[in-house]
Design a protein around this nucleic acid. Structure first.
Lengths: 261, 261
DNA sequence: TACGTCTGGTTGTCCGGACAATAACTCGGA
DNA sequence: TCCGAGTTATTGTCCGGACAACCAGACGTA
């Protein structure tokens, strides 16, 4: 194989008919979404190889009995996910990225669970307080407003991984200890009706104090990853502020960024 | 002001005529993009307050002499940036987020420059090598293929902040020391014709070895932030792999994540 | 008061068509 | 052989229209 054959645009194309694309007009699921999902699953399963894609939009529309705008909308969604690239005059290609898991606002609990790490949570504290300056500023509340304070220890295989301190506006979520030990905070927030939208994070590092080391089963002075995060729902309201500590020996953040604009 | 007045949808609206929205049909800039930028700048400058927005799409289209799809495309772009929220049956509102800088694939150089930190770079090493297993895997090359190795020290105000080691496929960029000391790697990559698309990052922490401490002007054992990153262009090709060390006492990662799908 | 119903307003989805911009390919001429 | 012009294919932008889905508030009824 020539050294850069994998970057050539002339990769042979599967016959699109093999993809079994079809839409169900009786379904309440939007047509563009049906198509978009079928294309995505075809890519995930390797039915569509990096290279030239389903010919052109117009023909694809014709074969599916859809209009071109609808097909474009389906393709556009995948372009924004980073699965496809459009090239004017050329066509639309599948991106040949090895790793194309798009990244989401990640939840430590879900991450650990997905990695088969059997996460567990110990709730250390759950109470309502008056907000200090830091939490109030992060949540956009007045200083002294009531906030729920939550402190948890996250473990895998019985060993501590992280110490999590969160502040919640009281009307957003009223968590119970049993729930918190069973699942992650993000899942609870979503379950309570918040549609999470974005988060601002700051990741740093520092040495563990004696108390922190004790809590996390490390030596004093051991390196810790620190993370502060404010999460916003789709109206821009802050629904959670957290300041967390991770054992650097047992955890690292993995994420994928997309370029915007 | 009642406690949650800022979340009420009934915020008085500026007269949209004050916004001086208009489009230039002679310009080569797409109409939807012109409108999108004008709306964005109106939001940035506070002319549009969180609350009810420019009435409805149809009326806005009529006033500007555009079609509704074009207006929708402009609004959609801002929704994806997290500046607006659409609510069926209600209208489109400006998100009331304090911080709404959308985030991009960040460049340390640009970040420091934007923060007024006067970044400087010292090139420690620049040579072509055979790729080791790690770099080859990250770049998707065969082990032993030629790669360019680049080691830099990044400083602000004369003090070291980070040690940067990068691997580049030789046909992507042929950087020169003078360029590297004048600007950041991302800017050079873009200048060389790569359109950067996404990056996978891993952020962790560890204690500085004696040699690392010496280089970064820290004490041995001091906490360091570590970052590995592979950057991909819009065809999914890896254009850069880097493994970096930051002084935790002087730097932290700040970024904003958007929820996907 | 409490609750279901109706109504108006707004975004969501979808269609069919038109022309512009861009890139690859073909082909003729030097 | 090399190079430039023309041709063709494909996505990019834009239009006008239609109906569906959904939400809030007003209204009527129990």
């Amino acid at each position: 194989m020539p050294p850069d054959a994998r970057y050539s645009p002339q990769v042979a194309n599967k016959d699109p008919l093999d993809l079994r694309l079809s839409v169900d007009r009786g379904s309440p699921v939007p047509l563009y979404f049906q198509l978009s999902q079928q294309l995505e699953s075809a890519i995930e399963r390797g039915l569509l190889v990096p290279g030239n894609l389903l010919g052109n939009e117009i023909e694809l529309a014709g074969r599916l009995g859809l209009s071109r705008p609808t097909v474009r909308q389906a393709i556009q969604a995948l372009v924004e996910k980073g699965l496809l690239v459009r090239r004017r005059g050329i066509g639309t290609q599948v991106v040949h990225s090895q790793v194309r898991r798009p990244l989401e606002l990640s939840s430590l609990y879900d991450d650990l669970e997905a990695a088969g790490q059997q996460p567990a949570t110990r709730v250390l504290r759950l109470e309502t307080q008056e907000a200090g300056a830091e939490a109030a500023a992060a949540l956009g509340l007045a200083e002294g407003a009531r906030v729920r304070l939550l402190e948890r220890l996250r473990l895998t295989h019985g060993e501590p991984v992280a110490f999590l301190r969160n502040y919640l506006p009281p009307d957003v979520l009223k968590p119970e200890v049993a729930e918190l030990e069973r699942t992650g905070l993000y899942r609870l927030l979503r379950g309570a009706g918040s549609t999470l939208h974005s988060a601002r994070q700051s990741v740093g590092a520092r040495s563990a104090s004696a108390a922190e080391a004790e809590l996390l089963d490390e030596q004093a002075g051991a390196p810790l990853l620190t993370m502060q995060r404010t999460t916003y729902d789709d109206t821009g309201r802050a629904v959670e502020y957290g300041t967390h500590l991770y054992r650097a020996s047992r955890y690292a953040f993995n994420f994928q960024l997309l370029v915007r604009g």
